[in-house]
């Protein structure tokens, strides 16, 4: 647990808003809300502390999509979640340089939600075909959309 502390202390200095729940009631031990330009820094910090990328996904909420990054540390299955509201220009810096596995997740999010990742090695469709470009199947229609505070509760 000493290791956990080092990580949390390091994170807390950069992200004072971090919430920690040792019991992992929702499936993760710590959660951070951050802004788009902070994500490469946060990813490098987590990489230096030996965390692996579990997955990246997005949720379509009002006003705009929110990216959700899940990281895990192998030694004790310590899980940390980063929440990132997509800014107005719909562009988020890619973390594929740090976590190479992120490239596919970002391509998938790109085609499903129409989010653009800057500095990405090649943002072509992954699971859909080229003809289906712009389909964005996981975007919800206005009537089905919930606002961020209602669903992304932690």
């Amino acid at each position: 647990m000493h290791h956990t502390d080092a990580l949390i202390i390091a994170l807390r200095t950069v992200f004072p808003s971090i919430t920690v729940s040792p019991e992992a009631e929702r499936g993760w031990h710590a959660a951070i809300a951050l802004a788009a330009e902070q994500i490469p820094g946060a990813a490098s910090l987590l990489f230096e502390h030996g965390l692996a990328l579990s997955f990246i996904t997005a949720v379509h909420v009002r006003p705009r999509c929110e990216l959700v990054y899940h990281f895990v540390r192998w030694e004790d299955a310590f899980r940390i979640v980063l929440h990132l509201p997509v800014p107005e220009n719909n562009t988020v810096p890619s973390i594929a340089e740090i976590y190479h596995g992120a490239a596919w997740h970002e391509r998938e999010i790109g085609e499903f939600f129409g989010i653009v990742f800057s500095n990405h090695p090649g943002l072509k469709p992954l699971l859909l075909t080229r003809e289906e470009k712009g389909l964005c199947p996981l975007l919800r229609s206005d009537s089905l959309l919930q606002s961020r505070e209602n669903v992304l509760i932690w």
Binding site: R26, G27, W28, S54, F55, T57, V59, V68, H70, V72, A77, R79, V81, Q146, N150, V151, L152, I153, W154
Partner: peptide, 24 residues
């Protein structure tokens, strides 16, 4: 209930995680 949650298990090929966002 509204809120989010994730759960992981060990599948035959590795970690399977389901991540749920619910709205009630």
């Amino acid at each position: 209930p509204a809120g989010q949650r994730s759960f992981s298990v060990e599948g035959a090929r590795g970690e399977v995680t389901y991540y749920l966002v619910a709205d009630g």
